[in-house]
């Protein structure tokens, strides 16, 4: 069930990037698209009945910490991409005075 919801989020993000013509909305779509993959990594790391992986005498079952670490890296990459995209959009706005892609293609 979770995977299906996750795939819906994935396709929704991809759809927004392709379909939207406003560049800011495209960046939002890109973020949704990336987040769906982050959530996928969190889903696969969950172990039934597992607790956070902190050394503890009572609990022996814990969730897999590795995907969390991987996704921390990927989140940092995502932030860098978003901020670079926003900076480039400012440049585009200064040059064309528009951020609607269908208008930009005409100029």
């Amino acid at each position: 069930m979770l995977f299906v919801l996750n795939m819906i989020l994935f396709l929704l993000g991809l759809f927004i990037i392709i379909r939207e013509s406003n560049l800011i909305k495209k960046v939002i779509g890109l973020n949704i698209f990336q987040s769906s993959v982050f959530i996928f990594y969190l889903i696969i790391s969950k172990v039934d009945g597992g607790v956070p992986p902190i050394l503890n005498d009572d609990q022996l079952i814990y969730s897999n910490p590795l995907p969390h670490v991987l996704i921390l890296t990927a989140i940092v990459v995502g932030i860098a991409t978003t901020s670079l995209a926003l900076a480039l959009i400012i440049k585009v706005k200064q040059k064309y005075n528009s951020i609607e892609e269908h208008e930009l293609d005409k100029i």
Binding site: Q34, T81, L84, L88, K95
Partner: peptide, 17 residues
């Protein structure tokens, strides 16, 4: 140039994801 860069950014990020 900036427009080409941002369009490449969207396509490249889709590929990376």
């Amino acid at each position: 140039s900036s427009l080409a860069a941002i369009q490449y950014l969207f396509i490249g990020s889709i590929g990376a994801v």
